[in-house]
């Protein structure tokens, strides 16, 4: 075994510094708490939460059991545990961005279809009423808000 390989193995097997370990665990726990809190407030749908919960748990597991990260480093051939983490973080973010683009495409398609069907229905409605709907001249926003406030004086922030 030559010297550089021995050196490389030594770096690979080196444990993460304690500060890094603590930072990773703290970060992962705060992500976990934030995600759970967002789901509780219904600001994040369950279907999107599992990715983040999974990531946070994986981060905690990797920080606590460093054997995993060293094994994975050896597999992918990276020199240090930190570069392995960075590598997988970037891969993860790329996949996530791609996944969001796909979802966005699907939503755009649905949004477009809904707009078109709404337009066709409104035309049908106008034909049946024999008069145009009043949307060609919408109320200015301020007047709408004022009208709503007058109709519901007890409502907060315009929520009627």
């Amino acid at each position: 075994m030559n010297a550089s390989l021995t050196n490389w193995l030594a770096i690979t097997q080196e444990p993460l510094p304690v500060r890094q370990q603590v930072t990773a665990v703290l970060l992962a726990v705060s992500v976990l708490v934030t995600v759970v809190e967002l789901v509780r407030r219904r600001k994040l749908r369950e279907e999107y939460s599992w990715v983040w919960v999974g990531t946070a748990i994986a981060l905690i597991a990797l920080a606590l059991h460093q054997d995993f990260i060293h094994t994975i480093s050896a597999w992918v051939g990276s020199a240090t545990a930190t570069s392995t983490l960075f590598f997988f973080a970037i891969v993860f973010l790329l996949m996530l961005a791609l996944q969001f683009s796909v979802r966005l495409s699907k939503l755009t398609h649905r949004h477009k279809t809904m707009g078109q069907r709404l337009a066709l229905l409104e035309e049908e409605l106008e034909r049946l009423r024999g008069a145009p709907l009043p949307h060609d001249a919408p109320l200015p926003l301020r007047e709408t808000t004022r009208a709503r406030a007058e109709a519901h004086p007890d409502a907060r922030d315009g929520v009627a």
């Binding site: 477009k112 707009g115 078109q116 709404l118 337009a119 066709l120 409104e122 035309e123 145009p132 060609d136």
Partner: peptide, 27 residues
């Protein structure tokens, strides 16, 4: 367009030239 005598189908927001044609075809 309505004032000029045409039937008007109005998209609630801008959807693009092709979508406008497509809405017309569907009508």
């Amino acid at each position: 367009a309505r004032a000029a005598g045409a039937t008007v189908i109005r998209h609630p927001y801008n959807l693009g030239y092709g979508s406008a044609l497509h809405t017309g075809y569907c009508h």
